[in-house]
């Protein structure tokens, strides 16, 4: 539950995002535990909307190895539907898998991969 990688735009409200993401882990945990009971093998990785706040929507995604991705999106951005979010997560997951494939990456370390960084940046630019 420690952050591997955090990035946010705009930078000024970074702290708020951090708090938000951290709090959302609660919901992630809750969802995982309820889902784990239901179906273990064929689990949907996408958790959907974790919880909405007034200004942001928080989406979650959990890999099978319990690596969590949380995405906070401005809720006024209505162009982002569930499907888009889902594909974004999938992209994120793929990129993360690439990072993990790096033999020099020590699982559990902070991610410093440039490729991953670029991918996230491009995704952010695309959204915003």
């Amino acid at each position: 539950n420690y952050p591997l990688y955090i990035r946010s735009t705009p930078m000024e409200s970074e702290l708020k995002f951090h708090y938000m993401v951290h709090t959302s882990l609660d919901v992630v945990d809750e969802k995982i535990s309820t889902m784990g009971k239901a179906l273990v093998d064929q689990r949907e990785l996408y958790l959907g909307l974790l919880y909405p706040t007034e200004d942001y929507k928080v989406y979650g995604y959990v890999t099978n190895s319990k690596v969590k991705f949380v995405m906070v999106v401005d809720s006024s951005n209505t162009a982002l539907r569930d499907n888009e979010i889902r594909s974004m997560f999938r992209k994120l997951h793929n990129s993360y898998t690439d990072v993990m494939c790096n033999p020099f990456y020590n699982p559990g370390d902070r991610i410093q991969s440039r490729a991953f960084d670029n991918m996230v940046t491009s995704m952010m630019i695309q959204v915003c």
């Binding site: 420690y2 952050p3 702290l15 951090h18 708090y19 951290h22």
Partner: peptide
């Protein structure tokens, strides 16, 4: 809590 989970900014 933040320390335990390593959230630097919070």
């Amino acid at each position: 809590t933040y320390l335990a989970e390593g959230w630097a900014l919070p």
